[in-house]
Design a protein around this nucleic acid. Structure first.
Lengths: 197, 197
DNA sequence: GTCTATAGATTGATAGAC
DNA sequence: GTCTATCAATCTATAGAC
């Protein structure tokens, strides 16, 4: 019996975390009430308090367990070709049109939690670590060919893609794929100073 | 008497809008209650409903009246020099460390309202128009020297600065000014294809 | 137009049964 | 660990006096 109890407990925890991700992406941190979060996971609010203490505890746990399942897929797709254009196109495509499993609103969850982290000390270090991980992972994927710092380029790539996606989400016609790719290409070769301009 | 009544009305409206901007930046859209918004403007909730109908009306009005007072200052500072490095440094500086009048949290207001716009049809077109204005204004300031589309570069500049500021806000050491400037410089000259790589 | 007072719904969190 | 029931606080919005 111990076994099945533990299983149910673990399942509940996972259901709560997944439901939290989805519902918060849809309604926002403040818009997703404890009851609604529990409902979405087919549990009641009591389960949330038993597992995480309070709503903030759930959010912090969500941040801790929140890994990009996408990372590996992106890397594989990236390394499938040697052509720089195709590689950057893969990066961009995976960023703007989220992978099969994730909801279309996953980017909203990123912004939701970033905003939350800006106002909550406990959350900030976790989200900061998440961005640090993202930079490192991307830097490793890019494995900077030349003298440029790979992490520097990774930070710029991430920044550009986030900012472009923000604009595109408001107006899909505002940002073309060509613009995005031209931007990534330019950033990839920022080592050379503005010599022949 | 009509005169002073109108004056008070106009003043109240302005106070409500300004207080809304500040309080929402601090607590978020959902975190700033109607009563709290009214309090911050030294009025009561009744004033908000009389002026804007409901909370959403206040937010929409805030979006409509929301102009960057900074635009002109940035442009003046930009054109004060011919040196590209100094120009981009001025752009970046004005973006990350907001001007005298604005609160340090003004960027949070941007994200707060962007997120709101992603979930609210009435708000989305307004925020989209705001970003379009920003692109146009920046494009005009940059007055693209060469064949590159000025609006394209403007979109990339804005995207990069937003994304870098997000990362820097979580961890000030993650993004150096040098990285930001190198990124802007690279984007400014994206016309040339990757020929001599 | 602005206030006070209040209705009605919803919130985060707790208590106690199982 | 999970549920039901519930409290106190807070929320948006309305009604009516001035």
């Amino acid at each position: 019996m111990r076994r099945s109890q533990d299983q149910r407990k673990a399942e509940t925890r996972q259901r709560l975390l997944q439901a939290a991700g989805e519902l918060i992406a849809e309604r926002g941190v403040a818009g997703a009430s404890v009851d609604a979060l529990a409902d979405a996971a087919d549990r009641t609010s009591g389960a949330i308090y038993a597992h995480f203490g309070d709503k903030e505890g759930l959010l912090v746990a969500l941040l801790d367990e929140w890994k990009d399942a996408t990372g590996d897929a992106v890397r594989a797709e990236y390394e499938a070709t040697d052509d720089e254009g195709a590689r950057f196109a893969a990066l961009w495509r995976n960023f703007v049109s989220p992978p099969p499993n994730a909801s279309d609103a996953w980017v909203l969850l990123e912004h939701e939690l970033w905003l939350y982290a800006c106002r909550n000390e406990r959350a900030r270090s976790r989200v900061a670590a998440r961005y640090d991980d993202a930079r490192r992972a991307l830097a490793q994927t890019l494995h900077a060919s030349d003298g440029t710092s790979a992490e520097e380029v990774a930070a710029l790539f991430i920044a550009l893609m986030i900012g472009l996606e923000m604009q595109r989400r408001l107006d899909p016609d505002a940002i073309t794929d060509e613009t995005a790719l031209a931007g990534l290409r330019a950033l990839a070769h920022l080592r050379q100073p503005a010599e022949n301009v």
